[in-house]
Design a protein around this nucleic acid. Structure first.
Lengths: 378, 378
DNA sequence: TTGTATGCGTTATCAG
DNA sequence: CTGATAACGCATACAA
C-alpha cells in the first residue's frame, strides 16, 4: 500500500499531485501528460497548453526519483573530495556545482576525510544513488585503485580532478604545476634575480615535484646554474619556511629571490627576511603558489599563482558530461592541464615604474572584496 | 521496456544485480531478500546469513532510488547556500556533510548565488528530488518568504542557519553575534582600554546590528560612555576600515582600542595604526570578528571571534533530523544560538606576562597548519 | 496525435 | 517465519 498518510492531514497541508492525477482531471492518458510535460514531438499544441496550465494550477512537481528509476539514470552527479575546507576544494566545488546546475544536474557531495575506506564507501553510496557520473579527488591515503575499477565495470562515468590517478587511461583535470613553477621563476629572473632559491614541498607529492621541475626549467632556460644548496625541502608550513629562509640567508652568497612552492612557504620567507631587516622585494624578491587569501593582505602583498579552482571544476564537469553523453560508447580518455595564472604583486616587482602601477594591485583588491563578501554576510 | 542495454556490453562490464536476481538464485521470494537485507525482525538467522553472503558475492548494491520511491522519502538532505566560498559557508557545509553522513544521509548542495529566483528554483529541485529535509541560509535578496511556505505545506522539514527568517515559528541555528560583540569588547576593557571605537558593518544586516549591540552592552556594563563619535559605519571592507581608522586617530581624543565587527575591518585598522607609527596593541588594541585565515598571519596576529562554523552545521543537522523523525507530528520550533569563541591573539594583549605565553599562540598555529593542510595537497 | 500496458527495484500489506 | 502481490510515479514500445 501507498505510504500516503491516511490520517487527518495537518491543517494547511497540500498533497503532491502526480501525472496520474492530472490525467484523470483532464480525461486523457498519462502518456499524454508525460509527453506534454517533457515536450515530446508528437503532442498537439492545444493539448500541450492545457496540460501545462493544469500542471501549473496544481503546482505539479515531477518526481525525479521515479523518472530516474524508470530511465536508469538520475540527474545527479557525485563528488568525492577529501574535505570541504581551505581555499582550494570549496572553490572547485563551487565551479562544479555552477557548471552542473547550468546543465540541469545537481550534485551530491561526499567527503573522504583523507581516508581510503571512506572513499570506497562514498563510491558505493553514489552507485546506490544511481548518479549519472562521479567526480573524484583522491584521498591522500589512497594507494590502491581497485574501487575505481568497480565504477568502470559498472560503466559509471568518472573524472578525476587535482589529485588524480596517474596514467593516460583515465579522465582527469589538473593544474599544470610545472608550468606554474616555470612562469614564477621566469618572472623572478625577469625582475633581475640571479640567485633564486626554492622552498620546496614534499617531493612524493606530484604537485611539489612538478613545481620544482618548472623552477629548474626556468633556471636552465636562463642559463642560471642549478644549485641544490638553493633548494630547501619542507612540509610547506610557515614555521619550516622561516627556518629555511634563515639558513638560506646565512649562506655565503644569499639568494636575491625565492620561489616558494606554496604561499605558506612564501609567507614564512617574507617574515624572516623582514626580521633580518632586509627589504622585499629589493633585497629578496618572493613568489608563492596557490593564491591563498592572505597573500593580498600581507605587507607587501605576495606574488603567487592562481590555481584556477573554478575553471577546474567547470572543466571537470564538461568532461564528465561528454562522458555521460557518450553513454558507454568508446571514449578516448583525456587529461586536461589548466594553465596557471601568475598574479604579480608587490613582493616580487622591482622595476619601480611597474611597481607604482601595481601598488593598488587591482586583482588583489578584487580578491579581498570577494573574500570579504564571501565571509558570512558582510 | 527496460532501458537495459541489449547490445553487446563492453568487455569487462558487470550488470548490477537486483533483489529479484538474488531471490531467483536462492529460490526464495523477494520479500525474504528484502527482509534479510533490511534486518527485519521476522527473518531466520540462517536465511539471513545465506542472503547476506550471496549479496556480498554478487556485490549487490541496493537501489536507493527505488527504495526512496517506494517509501516516499529518500536518504538525502538538501542544502541551499548563497555560495560555496570564503571561510564561512564551506566550513558549515563541511559540518553538515559530516553530521549527515554519520546519520546515514547524503547531501545535495545548491547555490542561490544571492538570488531569490534561484533560491526558489533550488527549493523546487529539492522537492522534486524528494529530499528528506532542507537546510537553508537565505540569499541576500530574499525579502519575501512565500517559497518556504510551499515547503511547509508539503510537510517538508526545514531548518535555517546563519541567515535565517526571523521569528519564533521557524527552526533555526545562528551564532550569538551580540554575545560575540560583548565578549570582544569586554576583553578589550579588561586589557585596560577605556576609549574603545567600533568599526561597524551595514546595520540593516542583523549580524552587524547585533555585534554593535554587544559592544554597547559591554561598554554600559563597564560604566564607559556610549559615544557615537567612536562608531564608524562601513561596508566592512579593508579600504573603508583604513579610512575609518584615519578619522578616529585624527580625533581630539583618539581611541585606545578598536572592536571591528569583521576581520577585514580589523585588518584595515591595524594597517592604518601601523602606518601612523603607532603600536598594536600598546597604543591601540584591536579585535576583529570571524576568524578569517589571515588573522593568524598578520603581524601581530589579530584577536577575533570564531563563529563555530562546523558546530553550526552539526547543530542544524541535529535539529533537522529531529524534525524528520517527528514526521509531521507537532514539533515546537526551536532557535539555537551558538556561543561564539573569543580567540585572544597578540593584537589585543597588553599584559606582558600573558603576552609572552601567547607569542606562539598555539591555536593560531593549529589554524595555520590546518589551513596549510587544507590548501590543496600541501 | 493519443492511448494501453508494462516494468524500473523496492517495500508494505496481507494471507499462509 | 515466508510468500504472493500490489503499488510508488514515471517513461516508453507498441497498438490504434
Amino acid at each position: 500500500m501507498a505510504p500516503r498518510k491516511k490520517q487527518a492531514p495537518e491543517p494547511n497541508t497540500t498533497i503532491p499531485v502526480s501525472m496520474a492525477d492530472l490525467a484523470r482531471e483532464l480525461g486523457v492518458s498519462m502518456t499524454t501528460i508525460s509527453r506534454a510535460l517533457s515536450d515530446h514531438y508528437s503532442i498537439g499544441p492545444a493539448m500541450k497548453q492545457k496540460v501545462l496550465k493544469l500542471a501549473k494550477k496544481y503546482n505539479y512537481q515531477p518526481n525525479r526519483l521515479a523518472s530516474a528509476l524508470r530511465k536508469g539514470k538520475s540527474q545527479l552527479l557525485g563528488i568525492v573530495v577529501p574535505y570541504i575546507e581551505g581555499r582550494f576544494f570549496p572553490s572547485v566545488v563551487h565551479g562544479i556545482e555552477s557548471a552542473a546546475s547550468k546543465a540541469g544536474y545537481n550534485v551530491i557531495i561526499c567527503q573522504s576525510n583523507e581516508d581510503v575506506a571512506q572513499e570506497r564507501r562514498n563510491l558505493d553510496i553514489l552507485l546506490s544513488a544511481q548518479v549519472a557520473g562521479v567526480l573524484v579527488s583522491l584521498s591522500r591515503t589512497t594507494r590502491d585503485f581497485r574501487h575505481f575499477e568497480k565504477l568502470r565495470s559498472r560503466g559509471m562515468p568518472l573524472v578525476f580532478f587535482d589529485r588524480i590517478v596517474e596514467g593516460d587511461n583515465v579522465n582527469a583535470v589538473v593544474l599544470d604545476d610545472q608550468e606554474g613553477g616555470y612562469v614564477s621563476t621566469r618572472h623572478l629572473i625577469e625582475q633581475g634575480c640571479r640567485r633564486i632559491a626554492h622552498i620546496a614541498g614534499p617531493q612524493h607529492l606530484n604537485i611539489y615535484k612538478n613545481r620544482r621541475q618548472g623552477y629548474l626549467d626556468a633556471l636552465r632556460e636562463a642559463g642560471l646554474p642549478e644549485d641544490e644548496s638553493l633548494i630547501v625541502y619542507t612540509d610547506m608550513i610557515q614555521s619550516q619556511a622561516i627556518d629555511a629562509m634563515r639558513d638560506l640567508l646565512a649562506s655565503p652568497i644569499p639568494p636575491d629571490g625565492v620561489f616558494a612552492a606554496g604561499d605558506y612557504g612564501a609567507l614564512g620567507a617574507l617574515q624572516e627576511v623582514h626580521r633580518q631587516g632586509l627589504r622585499v622585494p629589493q633585497d629578496v624578491a618572493i613568489a608563492g603558489f596557490s593564491n591563498e587569501t592572505f597573500t593580498v593582505v600581507t605587507e607587501p602583498s605576495i606574488t603567487t599563482i592562481d590555481q584556477r579552482c573554478e575553471e577546474m571544476g567547470q572543466a571537470a564537469v564538461r568532461l564528465l558530461l561528454e562522458l555521460i553523453e557518450a553513454d558507454g560508447r568508446p571514449f578516448a580518455p583525456r587529461q586536461v592541464a589548466l594553465r596557471p595564472e601568475l598574479l604579480v604583486r608587490n613582493s616580487s616587482v622591482r622595476n619601480s615604474s611597474v611597481r607604482n602601477s601595481l601598488v593598488r594591485h587591482p586583482e588583489g583588491e578584487r580578491l579581498v572584496e570577494a573574500a570579504a563578501k564571501a565571509s558570512k554576510l558582510a
